[in-house]
Design a protein around this nucleic acid. Structure first.
Length: 98
DNA sequence: CGGTTGACCAAGT
DNA sequence: GACTTGGCCAACC
């Protein structure tokens, strides 16, 4: 049985390039409400290059946070082809349904 | 086993 | 629309 954190990474791995997901969605996928725990897992993220933690945003569509700063996160997402408006993302367009 | 932390969320002010 | 409060839950010490 893998820990809660590892499951978050597995879910996250499924997210394709050019798409994003939310902390809330991941927590729900794990049948839990530990949004914060998901965020915590990302912060530790031992699978740094392996897991695209930068593709996870908040349920409001805001960037949220990132270990290297939210600005770096935005940069990466833009590179992935995601358009960001005023520091927010269009969930309708880019949210990847798990 | 209890208390603290956190890349969160929703509702209230 | 920005800020505060309370709540949720897993990981860590």
């Amino acid at each position: 049985m893998k820990s809660f954190n590892e499951r978050c990474y597995i879910i996250l791995k499924k997210v394709p390039k050019g798409k994003i997901t939310t902390y809330n969605a991941i927590a729900k996928k794990l049948n839990s409400k530990a949004y914060s725990a998901v965020g915590n897992a990302m912060n530790k993220n031992p699978y740094a290059p392996n897991v695209p933690c930068h593709r996870v945003i908040r349920s409001d569509g805001t960037i949220g946070d990132f270990a290297s700063g939210p600005i770096a996160k935005i940069k990466i997402l833009k590179k992935e082809g995601i358009e960001i408006k005023k520091g927010k993302i269009d969930l309708k367009k880019y949210e990847y349904k798990l």
